[in-house]
Amino acid sequence: MTGRVVLGLVVLGVAAAPLLGHQYYTTLMLPFFGYSLAVLGLNLLFGYTGLLSFGGALFVALGAYTAAYLTSVFGVLAFEGIVLAAAVVGFLVAIPVGLLCVRYVRIYFGMLTLAFGMLFYSFLFKFYHLTGGDEGLRVLRPRLFGLAFESLDKVQFLTGPFYYYSLALMVVGTAVMWRIARSPFGLCLRSIRENPGKAEYVGVSVRRYRFYAFLIAGVFGAVGGTLLAVPTGLADPLLAYWPHSGTLVFMMLLGGFSNFFGPILGAFVFIFLQDQVMSLTQYWRFVFGLILAIVVIFVPRGLMGFLDPRQRAGV
């Protein structure tokens, strides 16, 4: 009950942020929405199913390039269509990649997902005439529910209608993931994480369920990617570069993978911390490396471990 109240207040606070806060911080919230969805998907694989993927960036980039292709090549500006198309693309790409990857577990799974990410990065980088190479592809301002908001300048559009659109999409995505996590399917995933051998003997098709989780994570990653691409106005190959996958994993560990909301908190803290630390020192990567080491050693349950000290059986 208190959880619901806290959740409601948080969503209200985020919704009020553009009215109260500084415009700069409002624009910082935009990548947070996108990353939240991508990391929620990643955590279905890791926190629930026990598979650590380093291929998160692949799907985020797929979403961003879908947005770029649709807006600047095909002239499709309806953001609903873009999100839907990204979900479909993420799903379709996750089928062959997932079929291959879920045959393996642990480090082999991680390395294979990493390999597919690097493959896609090279493709984006080298096939200049298709992908724009290192320059990437432009993402034009999309229409939201058919509205172009031509009277608004770029920042007004992003901190106004697009902000609320992204927030709504994130809330819906989170609700969907919440239902999946609490479904019989979600329970089967957790049984696989705990003990795949035993899971098979109580009738859970381990490989098939891992594959389904991979598909869902792919869709969430791609949808998150569309939300990242619009504010920057660009889909560039760095989105698919492997350190970007590491960033997603960092967010997941920072927030705490053993709590449903950990990935969201992790994405939020990462983005704002990175912004602050980067403005203080050019050695921000050093600071972040230190933070990651501290999290892994001293707070393996992440920041959510502080906020919710109960050892949750629910995840």
Partner: peptide, 12 residues
């Protein structure tokens, strides 16, 4: 019912 992604485990 393992394929049910959309129903609640606790409400079943």
């Amino acid at each position: 019912r393992g394929g049910r992604l959309w129903s609640s485990l606790t409400d079943d």
